[in-house]
């Protein structure tokens, strides 16, 4: 089921062009759009999505999917908050325990998927409900707050003109890109995504790599949970609810093949940038959220469907050309 995109037109170019278009459209829609300070400030809303998307890129390249990231985020934040607020655990320790939990949640996904050889889609669909449900059991509809002052408002911390969380995301992006492109383990991920059986036969420890990725994804989501708790200065069970869709949209829009084996971090980050610009532009233009949903949904489908349709049309054309040339 793998269809190749055109070789000479990289997906990143399309995205860059679309991003420029979104910038133009945004400035047409609202006179308040082209304000560098504001645009940099809004990026803090998308940092958590971005960090989760980095790991999701690797997971999708590996031929899997992780729908449970947003729920892991919420459960980590909730557990950290409860440990600190109800059990008076020192905050730094609560954070560490929260991260430990996040790693375990990711590892549980890994164990079920690798150990029991279950499809990642259903496993993480189950844990998506289970983890958020667990957060709900923990704190119900309450907001758990009372974090120390130094912890709150990480999105307000700037390094020069840049929000630190944005720099964190970019640094994470560079690290992930290096990992995927330059390390043996990174290349293994592509190999597994391309052909699992062949990878296994050639001696790769496929299961170990997959389990590691899911654990890392859990850890990343946990970190995002702490970031978001800091941004909101509270933890709630419905934090980032539905964000897994945004994460997957960014990755797939960024050109990573949902069937695995192909893709990269640069595309994911560009796609995220495009989505953020679109949302911001439409929001500033007072376009209702329901219409924004339609645009994002159409963009996701269009980004996948159009290249495939173009490829189909090209094949049809070639088929018709061949007999003509032969005759």
């Amino acid at each position: 089921m793998k269809s190749s995109h055109s070789i000479f037109w990289r997906n990143e170019y399309t995205l860059a062009a679309l991003t420029v278009l979104a910038l133009l459209a945004g400035s047409r829609l609202s006179s308040h759009f082209l304000d560098a300070g504001y645009l940099l400030g809004t990026t803090t809303l998308y940092v958590e999505t971005g960090i989760m998307a980095l790991l999701m890129t690797a997971i999708i390249i590996c031929g899997h999917i992780d729908l449970s990231v947003a729920s892991t985020l919420a459960l980590t934040a909730a557990a950290t908050g409860v440990l600190h607020a109800q059990y008076a655990v020192p905050f730094w320790l609560a954070c560490c325990l929260g991260m430990l939990l996040a790693g375990m949640l990711g590892a549980l996904n890994g164990v079920l998927i690798v150990g029991m050889n279950l499809p990642s889609l259903t496993v993480t669909l189950g844990t998506m409900a289970l983890y958020r449900g667990a957060a709900q059991i923990l704190i119900g509809d309450h907001s758990v707050g009372g974090f120390p002052a130094w912890f709150c408002g990480v999105d307000q911390v700037y390094a020069g003109p840049f929000p630190v969380t944005l720099l964190l995301l970019l640094a994470g992006g560079c690290a992930m890109a290096l990992f995927l492109q330059r390390t043996t383990l990174g290349r293994c991920i592509y190999a597994i995504g391309n052909n699992k059986t062949a990878s296994r036969l050639s001696g790769l420890r496929v299961g170990a790599v997959e389990a590691l990725l899911f654990t890392l994804s859990g850890l990343a989501a946990g970190m995002c949970g702490l970031l978001m708790a800091s941004r909101l200065s509270v933890a709630r069970f419905d934090m980032a609810s539905g964000k897994e869709l945004d994460v997957i949209t960014a990755v797939v829009l960024g050109g990573t093949d949902i069937f695995g084996g192909k893709g990269g971090v640069a595309g994911t980050l560009l796609a995220l940038c495009l989505l953020a610009l679109l949302r911001t532009g439409m929001g500033l233009a007072d376009i209702p959220s329901e219409k924004q949903q339609i645009v994002v949904g159409a963009l996701l489908i269009g980004a996948i469907a159009l290249p495939r349709l173009a490829e189909l049309a090209r094949k049809q054309y070639m088929k018709r050309q061949k007999p003509a040339a032969a005759g």
Partner: peptide, 20 residues
Amino acid sequence: GAGVPSIIATLGTLSIYRGL
């Protein structure tokens, strides 16, 4: 028809239909 993986296609139409 267009070869969009079903998880992506229906993820998209999930939000499109809701907007509709």
